[in-house]
Design a protein around this nucleic acid. Structure first.
Length: 809
DNA sequence: GTCGACCCTTTTTTT
DNA sequence: AAGGGTCGAC
C-alpha cells in the first residue's frame, strides 16, 4: 500500500516512530506526502487508526490531509484530523463540568466583542490611556493586545501583578518604559473585564478555546491521563506557526513525546503577528532532548533557478534551522525581474504578459498567481486583467460596507429604526425604487414648510409621508404610497420580532433585495446572496449583546462596528488567474507566479510598532532578545521567500519605481538588492514601458487643489451660517468631482447646458482657475434663476443627491 | 543628529 | 480623519 517512491530522507522520516521527531520540510519537499505515508504505514503496522491524531491550523489543511490519506488507504479511516481550535472546542465541551462552564457556551463574534468594548469603555476606569472620541482603533488595539497575552497563556491577574510589581519597584526606568507599563496596567483592566464578561455570559472566543483546554489538562491530572491515553500517535502540521499556548497544549497531550511528530519549516513562519512563535522549534528541542530532526532537502516543485534564487534570499536570515534545499527539476528559465516606471504601467505590463502567456498557450489561467504583500496592492492587477478580459479572481475577504446592495439594505433599516430622523435614508430608498429627483424635491419642500411652522417631528420627511402626501399631487404618488405602506408594515413588524427576523422580512418580503439576486444566476448574484446572509448573521450576533433584542439598539450597535468584513467564498476549480496576498498563497503552488510591488514600504512592509506588547520578562519559553524591527525584517524576508517558492516553472519579480499619489518615487525592494538582481546570472532583467494613464491627475494638480479648497470653504461657510456661499461651493465641488471622475465635462450638463462647452483640455495645468471661474459664474446664475429656495438652512433643498449626501455628513 | 516629508498591514480559528 | 512613527535628506 505504501508507495515506494519516497526519497531517502522522506523514508527516514516515515520510518522513524520511536521517539519525538521534527521534520524540517522546505517548500515543495513532499511534506504532505511524507505525513500521509507515515500515517498509512502506522495503520499498516496495525496501529489502531482511532488512536492517531493530526492537528493543523486551518480547516483547509485538515481537509487536505484527510483527502490524501483517504486516497491512500480508503475511506472511514477513523483517524482524528482536526484543527487546534476545533479539537480544543470539543475538549472543552466534553469536560465542561470539570472546567466549571455551562455546556451551552457560545462563540462570541468579533463584532460582538468590539461593540461590547466600545459601549463599556468608560467603565474600565483607565488611568493612563486617554479615550478618544472614536474609540474604534483603541478597541482594536486592546483586543489585539489581550489576544497576545492569551497566546502566551498569561492571565489578566498575572499581567496585573507583573505591572504593579514593576511600577512599585525602585529600579531605574526611563519615561518610555514607565509609560508602557502604565498602559499595560490599563490593558490588564480591560483584559480582566473582557474575560469576566465572557465568563459571566457564557461566551468564549477562539483564544479561550486554547487557553481553557490548556488549563483543563494542566490542572486535572485525571482528564489529562485519559486524553493522553486516547492517542498513540500525534502529528502536528505547520509547527512553525504555533504560538506558545499551542506548543504547551501539544506538550500536555504528548505524554513524554515518544509519540510526537511535528512538521515545520522555520523559513515559512509568517504569522508572528498572531503569536506564531519561531523559537517554539528550539523550545521543542529543550522539552524533548531526544528529539530527532530530519530535514527534507529536495524540492520537487520549482525549477532550479527559482530554488537557487530563493535560497540566496532566505540564507540571509540568521539563526535558521540547518538545512539546504536543492531542486530536483532542472529547468534553466531565469527568474524575470521586471522594472516598471510606475504602478499603472506595472499592472498593465503584468496583464499584457499574462495575455501573451495565454495566447501562446503556454499555460492556462488557473496556472497563474499574482501575489502582493497587502491585499490592496492586488487591486490594480485584478482591474487590469478585467480590462483585458482575462478571467480573474481577487481572493480574500470582502469589505461589505460600501457595496450598494448593503447600503440599500441599511437605508431601509435606518429608516425603520427611526423614521422621523432618516430623511436621507428615505431618499436612498426612493431613488432605489425608481423615484425621481423631482419627487424627492417636492417632499423636501413640504418638509421644509412644516419645519418653518414647527409642526413636525424630526426632519419632517416622515410627517409629510404620513399626513400630507395627497396635498403634494405627485406624479409618482402610487410609488411613494407603496414604499410608505411597506415601510410602515416593517415598523410594525419590528415591534414583535427579533431584529434579525425583521431584517429577513425586509430582505425577503418587503423588498426585492433578496429575490432579485436569487432569480439571477450569475457569479455576482451568488456573492451578493452571501453578503446578505452575512449581514443577517452579523445582526444575529449583535442581538446577543446585553441580551437586548431591540431593533433600534441593534442598529446603534451596527453603527459601532467599524468595518464589516466577510470572507470571500473561495471558488475551487475555476479556471481563473488568482490575485491574492502572500499569506493566502501559503501552501499553494502555480506554474507561473508574479510577485508584485517588490518595492520599499510594500514588500518589506514598513515597520510599525504595536500598541501593546508582551514585556520581555513575561514571555514564556525560549526567546531571542532581538529588536522588534529586526524580527520584522526577517519575517518580511520569509514572506518574500514564501512568495517566490510558490512558482513551479516561471517566476516574475515585479516592481514600480513610482506610485500614483506619491510625490516621491520608490526604490526597489531591499530583497531584490539582497539577491543582487542587477547582476545575478539567475535573473533576466526586463524594463516595462510607460503606459499613458487615462486621466492623469496627481494630488497636487490644480483640480485636486481646487477641490480641497472648496471643501474647506464649505466647512467654513456652513459653520458661519453663510449658506448661499456654502451651497455655491457645494455645487462647484460636485462639478469638480464629476469632472475628475469622467474627465469629460459633457456629463455636466445635468446642471446647465453651458457647462457642456467646457473641454477636457481646459482642465490641464493653469487653466483650471479660468474653468472654475466659469463654473462659478454659471452656478451663480443658476442659483439666482431657479433655485432661490436653496437658501434654506439644509441641503434637503438642493436638487442633487450627491450634494445632499455630502452636506449631510 | 535633527528636521521635515511622507505615509498609514498581514489574518486563522466553531456549531 | 489624523497624529504618530519612520526614514531620508541635510
Amino acid at each position: 500500500m505504501v508507495e515506494a517512491k519516497l526519497n531517502y530522507d522522506q523514508l527516514k522520516a516515515v520510518s522513524c516512530t520511536g521517539g519525538p521527531l521534527l521534520i524540517l520540510a522546505g517548500p515543495g519537499s513532499g511534506k504532505t506526502l511524507t505525513i500521509t505515508d507515515k500515517v498509512a504505514r502506522l495503520i499498516e503496522s496495525f496501529s489502531p487508526p482511532e488512536k492517531i491524531i493530526a492537528l493543523t491550523f486551518s480547516e483547509k489543511a485538515a481537509d487536505e490531509i484527510q483527502n490524501r490519506i483517504e486516497k491512500k488507504i480508503g475511506n472511514a479511516t477513523g483517524i482524528t484530523i482536526s484543527t487546534f481550535h476545533s479539537f480544543c472546542n470539543d475538549l472543552i465541551r466534553d469536560f465542561s463540568m470539570d472546567i466549571g462552564i455551562n455546556h451551552g457556551i457560545r462563540l462570541i463574534s468579533k463584532e460582538h466583542s468590539h461593540v461590547w468594548s466600545i459601549k463599556n469603555i468608560d467603565s474600565f476606569n483607565f488611568e493612563y490611556i486617554p479615550i478618544p472620541i472614536m474609540p474604534s482603533d483603541l478597541i482594536k488595539n486592546l483586543l489585539e493586545g489581550t489576544s497576545q497575552f492569551h497566546d502566551q497563556l498569561i492571565s489578566p491577574e498575572e499581567l496585573g501583578e507583573y505591572v504593579q510589581g514593576q511600577l512599585s519597584s525602585e529600579g531605574e526606568m526611563n519615561v518610555d518604559e514607565i509609560d508602557k507599563l502604565q498602559k499595560l496596567a490599563d490593558l490588564a483592566k480591560f483584559y480582566h473585564n473582557y474575560q469576566k464578561y465572557k465568563w459571566n455570559n457564557n461566551f468564549i472566543d477562539y483564544d479561550d478555546m486554547i487557553t481553557l483546554a490548556c488549563r483543563l489538562l494542566e490542572r486535572n491530572e485525571i482528564v489529562r491521563k485519559r486524553i493522553q491515553q486516547l492517542y498513540d500517535h500525534m502529528l502536528v502540521d505547520e509547527f512553525q506557526d504555533t504560538n506558545y499556548a499551542q506548543l504547551h497544549l501539544v506538550h500536555l497531550l504528548a505524554d513524554g513525546g515518544g509519540n510526537l511528530t511535528c512538521v515545520a519549516d522555520d523559513d515559512q513562519c509568517i504569522y508572528r503577528f498572531r503569536g506564531a512563535y519561531l523559537s517554539n522549534i528550539d523550545q521543542l528541542g529543550e522539552l524533548y532532548p531526544s528529539l530527532e530532526k530530519i530535514a527534507l532537502g529536495i524540492n520537487y516543485r520549482s525549477a532550479e533557478p527559482i530554488v537557487k534564487l530563493s535560497q540566496e534570499l532566505i540564507s540571509q536570515n540568521p539563526d535558521r534551522q540547518e538545512k539546504q534545499l536543492v531542486s530536483n527539476n532542472g529547468g534553466i528559465a531565469p527568474v524575470k525581474v521586471v522594472k516598471a516606471p510606475n504602478d499603472v504601467s506595472e499592472a498593465e505590463w503584468v496583464a499584457g504578459e499574462i495575455c501573451r502567456l495565454l495566447d501562446e498557450k503556454i499555460v492556462e489561467q488557473k496556472d497563474i498567481y499574482i501575489l502582493t504583500r497587502k491585499r490592496a496592492d492586488g487591486k490594480k492587477f485584478s482591474d487590469a486583467l478585467k480590462r483585458h478580459m482575462v478571467p480573474v479572481e481577487y481572493v480574500g475577504s470582502l469589505q461589505i460596507n460600501d457595496l450598494p446592495l448593503i447600503q440599500d439594505a441599511l437605508a431601509y433599516m435606518h429608516f425603520v429604526a427611526d423614521p422621523f430622523n432618516n430623511g436621507v435614508a428615505f431618499a436612498n430608498i426612493l431613488f432605489r425604487e425608481g423615484g425621481t429627483e423631482h419627487t424627492l424635491q417636492k417632499i423636501n419642500i413640504m418638509a421644509g414648510k412644516l419645519q418653518e411652522m414647527d409642526n413636525m417631528q424630526g426632519d419632517g420627511i416622515y410627517s409629510v409621508l404620513l399626513h400630507h402626501l395627497d396635498e403634494l399631487d405627485l406624479e409618482q404618488a402610487d410609488l411613494v404610497k407603496s414604499i410608505l405602506e411597506r415601510l410602515q408594515e416593517l415598523i410594525e413588524y419590528k415591534k414583535k420580532h427579533l431584529p434579525s427576523d425583521t431584517l429577513k422580512h425586509l430582505l425577503m418580503n418587503i423588498t426585492d433585495l433578496y429575490r432579485s439576486q436569487a432569480h439571477e444566476n450569475s457569479k455576482n448574484s451568488h456573492r451578493n446572496i452571501e453578503v446578505l446572509n452575512s449581514l443577517v448573521k452579523i445582526v444575529e450576533d449583535l442581538e446577543l449583546i446585553d441580551g437586548s433584542a431591540e431593533f433600534e439598539l441593534v442598529m446603534e450597535h451596527l453603527e459601532l462596528v467599524f468595518d464589516l468584513e466577510i470572507e470571500g467564498s473561495e471558488s475551487t476549480d475555476d479556471n481563473t488567474v488568482k490575485v491574492m496576498t502572500i499569506h493566502q498563497s501559503k501552501g499553494k503552488e502555480a506554474k507561473v507566479v508574479f510577485v508584485c510591488d517588490m518595492a520599499t514600504r510594500h514588500l518589506p512592509l514598513q515597520y510599525k510598532s504595536k500598541k501593546f506588547t508582551v514585556p520581555f520578562k513575561l514571555i514564556k519559553g525560549v526567546q531571542r532578545d532581538v529588536d522588534e524591527k529586526v524580527l520584522h525584517l526577517e519575517e518580511e524576508r520569509r514572506l518574500a521567500y514564501v512568495a517566490m517558492t510558490r512558482a513551479k516553472e516561471q517566476l516574475y519579480l515585479v516592481f514600480p519605481e513610482r506610485y500614483t499619489g506619491n510625490v516621491k518615487g520608490v526604490k526597489s525592494s531591499q530583497f531584490l538588492e539582497d539577491i543582487r538582481f542587477a547582476s545575478n546570472p539567475l535573473v533576466e532583467l526586463i524594463e516595462a514601458e510607460q503606459v499613458e494613464e487615462q486621466f492623469e491627475l496627481d494630488t497636487d494638480s490644480p483640480l485636486k487643489r481646487k477641490m480641497a479648497e472648496q471643501e474647506s470653504l464649505i466647512n467654513m461657510y456652513s459653520k458661519q451660517g453663510q449658506l448661499t456661499h456654502a451651497i455655491e461651493s457645494l455645487v462647484m465641488l460636485a462639478q469638480l468631482k464629476e469632472l475628475e471622475k469622467s474627465g469629460n465635462p459633457d456629463n455636466l450638463d445635468f446642471v446647465h447646458p453651458e457647462l457642456a462647452e467646457l473641454r477636457v483640455v481646459d482642465v490641464s495645468e493653469g487653466i483650471v482657475g479660468a474653468v472654475v471661474e466659469r463654473v462659478k459664474g454659471i452656478v451663480d446664475r443658476i442659483l439666482k434663476e431657479d433655485f432661490e429656495v436653496r437658501e434654506e438652512p439644509t441641503c434637503r433643498f438642493c436638487d442633487y443627491k450627491r450634494i445632499c449626501e455630502f452636506h449631510e455628513t
